[in-house]
Simulated scan of single mutants.
Amino acid sequence: MCTPVRKKLLLAVLVLCFGVQTGLVYSDVRSVPLSEEALAGRELWQGYACQTCHQLYGQGGFLGPDLTHAASRVDSTRLVSLLRVGSGQMPPLGFSDEAAAAMAAFLREIDRPEIGRGQLRLGTPGEGAGAQAAFERAIEAAVASGEGGAAAEDLAEVAAGLAAFRIRPCSACHFPFRDSPVGAPDLSLVAGSLSPDSLERVLAEGRPLKGMPPPVPPLDAADRAAITAFLEFLGANREQLDAATRALAADRSLDWRALPWWEFP
C-alpha cells in the first residue's frame, strides 16, 4: 500500500526528473549558420507556414511528414514537383526555380545529424519501415535476382521505370497492391486492365476527370516505355512481390539504446 510519505517521495522524484530533463533540453544551445540562399528558403518556410503541417527537429505539425532530414531522402526532382504541384493533401505552391532552389538549400543545410534527429519513427534506420519503402525494396531485390526469368535488358527497363515512378509523387495516391482510400487503383493490375494505347495516354495526360493530374515532371517517350515495363512487371509477378513487400514491411527492428530519448520529451 502506498502511504502518504511514499506518495510525497514519488512526487518529489518525478519533479526532480522533470527538472533535470528541462535543464538538459534547454541548456543544449545550438547555432546553425545558414547561407544567404538557405536564409531565403527559411523565409519561404515561415511565409508559407510549412510548420503547420511539417516538423523540423520535433517542432511543428503532424499532418505531413517530418522534413528534418528530407534532403537526405527526397530526390531533387521530386522536391521541385512537390513544391510546384503539391501531392495528396499538400496544396500546389507554384514555386519558381529560384524559390525551389532556396527551399532545397534550407532543407539541405539543416539536415545535420550532429544537431539532432527528427520525429521518432519505428523501423530500421536508412531502410524505411513503411509499406512504400518495403514495396520499392522488394522490386529492387526482384530485379537484382532476375525475377521471373526476364532478360537483362527488360529488367534494366523495369529498374528505369521504378526510378521514374519514384521521383514523381505517384506514391502519394497509389498504394502497393491495393486500391487507395482516395480511389487510386492498384498499379499491379493497371497493365492488364488498360489497352496499350489507353495506358500510353494516361501516362502522357493523366486522367483529370478522375482526379489524376498529368505526371510532373512530364514523362517523355522513354519514361513512358520504362514505366509501362515496370507496370507489366508488377502484374506478372504480383503475388511474389506482394508477399515480399509484406515480409519486408513486417521485418521492423528497433534498437532502443540508440534512441535519443532527451529529444522526445
Rank of each mutant, 00 (worst) to 15 (best):
P4N: 02
L10H: 13
L14P: 07
L16Y: 07
L16K: 03
G19N: 08
V20N: 03
T22D: 12
V25A: 08
Y26P: 00
R30P: 02
A40N: 03
A40P: 01
R42Y: 02
L44Y: 09
W45V: 06
G47W: 03
C50D: 04
G61F: 14
G61E: 15
H69W: 05
A71I: 14
A71P: 07
D75G: 07
D75Q: 09
L79R: 06
V80S: 01
V85W: 00
V85M: 02
G86M: 05
Q89G: 03
M90R: 06
G94R: 09
G94L: 10
A100M: 05
A104H: 15
R108L: 13
E109S: 11
E109W: 08
D111A: 14
I115N: 03
I115H: 05
G118E: 01
R121N: 06
T124F: 00
Q132V: 01
A133G: 04
A134T: 04
F135T: 05
F135H: 11
R137V: 13
R137P: 10
I139E: 04
I139M: 08
A141Q: 07
A141L: 11
A142V: 02
A142R: 03
A144N: 07
G149W: 02
A151R: 11
A156Q: 09
E157W: 04
E157D: 11
A159E: 09
G161N: 07
G161L: 12
L162R: 06
P169V: 06
P176D: 05
F177P: 03
F177G: 08
R178W: 06
D179Q: 08
S180W: 08
P181C: 13
A184T: 09
P185K: 00
D186L: 04
S188P: 09
V190P: 06
G192D: 13
S193I: 11
P196R: 11
S198E: 15
E200F: 11
R201D: 10
A204H: 05
K210A: 15
K210L: 15
P213R: 03
P214Q: 13
V216M: 13
A221Q: 13
A221E: 15
L231E: 01
L231Y: 04
G235S: 01
N237I: 11
E239D: 11
Q240T: 13
A249L: 06
R252E: 14
S253Q: 10
A258I: 10
W262T: 13
